[in-house]
């Protein structure tokens, strides 16, 4: 018997709360920066509610402010968000039993924080038939908080002098570090993550954030290869 959907949905909301603490300051600063870049209130809300892609929103607003042409901004969005394809591939075996009316909203909600919060549950409770309710709970909670934070940024940004210089963007780094550190418990993961971090610094100057994709793929490859190598060494 499958447990009721309410419990995993609420658990998803609870699991999203720490990430929301980090996401809210980032959303506030987005609302502020977007207005400063020349977008109006509805366009700013549109980016957060229709696109729903934190880092791509920042990149787009920055490029708009710099007068970059539309095609390049869409191209940058593609590259910055390409990592979500990796997340979709990871969750693929776990969503294929679901009807499209589930897959569409779950796909729309597939951002870094949502993936990081719900994927461990899929790995640890693979047999639970209601994991998609957990995924939905995390996603809805983060979506609502991101949009509320954007609106707060719009309202406050005009009234608080210099809020863009407060350094609220550190919240994103703090959140991501908090999500990564608990995974560093075995050699392949440590090696992969370190490789990814070092390469991200070395490729930082490459255009359109392409270094993000290179570093991520290289880190994953190193982790996988070391895991295989250690596995074979144990057997021989």
């Amino acid at each position: 018997m499958v447990e009721s959907p309410k419990a995993p949905f609420l658990k998803g909301i609870i699991d999203a709360l720490p990430l929301i603490v980090g996401g809210v300051p980032f959303g506030i600063i987005f609302g502020t920066l977007s207005l400063n870049a020349g977008l109006d209130v509805w366009q700013t809300i549109g980016l957060s509610s229709i696109v729903f892609a934190g880092s791509a929103q920042f990149v787009a607003v920055g490029m708009l402010a710099a007068g970059t042409s539309l095609g390049f901004i869409v191209g940058a969005t593609l590259i910055v968000n390409l990592r979500h394809l990796i997340y979709a591939a990871s969750l693929l075996p776990h969503v294929k039993h679901l009807p499209q009316r589930w897959r569409i909203p779950l796909g729309f909600l597939l951002i870094d924080e949502v993936f990081a919060a719900t994927y461990p549950r899929y790995l640890n409770n693979a047999d639970c038939g209601n994991n998609h309710w957990h995924y939905l709970g995390v996603g809805v909670a983060f979506y609502v908080s991101w949009n509320v934070a954007t609106i707060v940024g719009i309202l406050f940004g005009a009234n608080i002098e210099g809020i863009a210089d407060w350094g609220l963007d550190f919240a994103m780094s703090a959140t991501f570090i908090g999500m990564v550190m608990p995974h560093l418990v075995n050699k392949p993961m440590v090696a992969g993550v370190m490789c990814s971090g070092v390469l991200a610094v070395l490729t930082y100057s490459l255009p359109h954030k392409i270094g993000l994709v290179i570093s991520s793929v290289a880190g994953m490859s190193v982790g996988y290869m070391l895991e295989q190598w250690l596995h074979h060494k144990d057997q021989s």
């Binding site: 880092s55 990592r83 990796i86 997340y87 591939a89 990871s90 870094d112 993936f115 990081a116 994927y119 994103m172 780094s173 991501f176 570090i177 999500m179 990564v180 995974h183 560093l184 392949p188 993961m189 992969g192 993550v193 490789c195 990814s196 971090g197 390469l199 991200a200 270094g211 993000l212 570093s215 991520s216 880190g219 994953m220 982790g223 996988y224």
Partner: peptide, 11 residues
């Protein structure tokens, strides 16, 4: 290895 590597390439 996806999430830890991708997030690290950002932070």
């Amino acid at each position: 290895y996806s999430a830890p590597c991708v997030l690290t390439a950002i932070w």
